[in-house]
Design a protein around this nucleic acid. Structure first.
Lengths: 185, 185
DNA sequence: CTCAATTGATTGACGCGTAAACTAAAAATG
DNA sequence: CATTTTTAGTTTACGCGTCAATCAATTGAG
């Protein structure tokens, strides 16, 4: 049976086909807009969102971390991480260091310069969070986070984890996963 | 209330710096995860999220649209639109057409092939929306959309429109969200 | 009318995400 | 011990977003 006129008509001028679509699009749109603001902020300090992301992960860890562990905590797939690390290393914000035990793994650490840079971003970043959604009441913020967390439950159940490429080890659902840290788009 | 999903996912030992940060990060994270799902769906049909976005905009308009008007309705900046249009044209999904009055202007239309392709994506896409947030109640969906729209108000007021590059015409705040249509990250 | 400013659109350079193919080291298997 | 398999990481190729610079058509000021 062909598509049907009813469906076509509903689609034609209705702003949204369903409340589900409306919500999903709202999530995407809001994240995009907010992401642009954060990207602008990071760029003032010479960083892209992804680069900031890596630095945050490394600062949070406090000690050298294998490169793939960094990738695991970002949404990004693995291959892209190499160039990212390259650039950060060239900027002097992080340092590579090959493991002696297992010479395949490359550890990455944040340098003092990297920590300094992050330190200068901390306050403006908090202020931006505040500017963007500070006008929501505490109740609204709580409810918003609750709804978004509930929304993401549909991903866990279907095994639809973000990181493609390989789902090596730690396949267990909801292991103590240090997820992505930042905001970048 | 238990620790909260995002907090656990981030394995942040301390609490969030602020409820504002928690909410902002939740928005970004949810959009990222959902975006991956949609990107996968579109890719099954040979489309990237951006390409799908352009096609949706053109179908919604129903008539030829100047290239910059397409860019306006996407988050993307202007220069990137050219290559995007190039590829879609090469795929036979849209058509370019130079204006006769103002020979600087290039109009873009969706072809029948483009419409057909979109038609085949419609149902699976709706199903995906459903799968991703169908488990929220109507009340919750309404509330989620309301909160996200309210969150975005902070952007309108400060003139922080997404599209950089040039902020030519149509500066009007929040015209009936004819804005970007898709989901891509 | 002429010349400068504006506007629509494109190009080039760079960073990033992702799929695919590849190298090298370690682990598993026989 | 030799061979296969797995794993860490890189390279390559392509699509896309963004900035800076450019070109051509149009508009505006004098």
């Amino acid at each position: 049976m062909p598509p049907g006129r009813l469906q076509r008509e509903l689609k034609k001028r209705g702003p949204f086909a369903s409340p589900e679509q409306e919500a999903t699009l709202n999530i995407a749109r809001t994240a995009d807009r907010f992401g642009i603001c954060f990207a602008r902020l990071f760029r003032e300090y010479g960083l892209t969102p992804s680069q900031y992301n890596v630095l945050r992960i490394l600062r949070g860890e406090g000690k050298p971390l294998p490169i793939l562990d960094v990738a695991d905590r970002m949404i990004a797939a693995v291959p892209g991480i190499t160039g990212l690390i390259d650039r950060l290393e060239r900027m002097g914000l992080i340092a590579r260091e090959r493991s002696t035990e297992d010479r395949r793994v490359v550890y990455v650490t944040i340098t003092d310069a990297g920590l300094d840079l992050l330190g200068t971003i901390d306050k403006p970043e908090a202020a931006l969070h505040q500017r963007l959604i500070g006008h929501l009441s505490p109740d609204e913020l709580r409810e918003l986070s609750r709804l978004l967390e509930k929304a993401r439950q549909s991903l866990d159940q279907t095994g639809d984890r973000g990181g493609s490429y390989r789902w090596h080890k730690t396949m267990g659902p909801s292991h103590p996963d240090n997820g992505p840290r930042s905001i970048g788009r």
